[in-house]
């Protein structure tokens, strides 16, 4: 790949690139596009069409950077959001897909975007969404955790803490004095 360093996001450039973007978005018919502002696009796409969309965006529209993959637990399905940044047009496209809750499996886009490796591993660890074809699905952060995927809405951290640990009550002198008079900690 040849990178033209001096290439600035001129108006023409921007216009031509958005045309490419438009073309791509029209080639895939299952898209829903929303422009949020000059630099933010939201694209809703079916899960099957996403890899093709990413390839096209990267290959033809200059979306070289996968900024992040975010996972949202909607309790009946997962939403995966692929944030793509173009250094040329200075535009961020967020591609949203929905995948089923169980079994939560999706395909890896590591072959298109290397950074996906980290995010996919992270999402698997935190949400239990498995990415087929991802190079590394081993645990990274929660090495010693064997409970449910903790970022799921169904995982109640406070309950876990209450079940797991004991609370230690303070008994300072001032509190004892107040308690002797009939006072107490009320909330």
């Amino acid at each position: 790949m040849v990178w033209d360093q001096d290439k600035e996001a001129t108006k023409d450039n921007y216009a031509s690139q958005t045309i490419v973007l438009d073309q791509i978005l029209h080639e895939l018919d299952t898209l829903n596009i929303e422009q949020k502002n000059n630099q933010r696009f939201r694209v809703d796409v079916s899960a099957e069409a996403l890899p093709a969309l990413l390839s096209l965006l990267k290959g033809r529209a200059g979306y070289t950077q996968l900024s992040a993959i975010s996972c949202v637990d909607w309790e009946d399905e997962f939403e995966l959001v692929y944030h793509l940044w173009s250094y040329e047009t200075k535009v961020l496209v967020s591609a949203h897909i929905r995948i089923q809750y169980t079994p939560a499996v999706y395909v890896s886009v590591y072959d298109i975007y290397t950074p996906a490796g980290f995010f996919e591993r992270d999402i698997y660890e935190m949400y239990g969404v498995y990415f087929e074809g991802s190079p590394m699905m081993e645990k990274f952060i929660l090495t010693e955790w064997h409970g449910p995927a903790p970022m799921l809405k169904s995982f109640d951290t406070l309950k876990y803490v209450n079940d797991m640990f004991n609370w230690q009550e303070y008994q300072p002198d001032w509190l004892k004095e107040i308690q002797a008079k009939g006072g107490k900690v009320v909330s």
Binding site: L175, I178, K181, G182, G183, K184, V185, V186, S187
Partner: peptide, 23 residues
């Protein structure tokens, strides 16, 4: 922050004063 009931303190519900203080 926990609220502590302190019996010595004046309480006046009509004036909006309760004998609780934060710990």
């Amino acid at each position: 922050i926990q609220m502590v009931y302190i019996p010595d303190l004046p309480s006046d519900l009509l004036a909006g004063k309760k004998p609780f203080r934060p710990a």
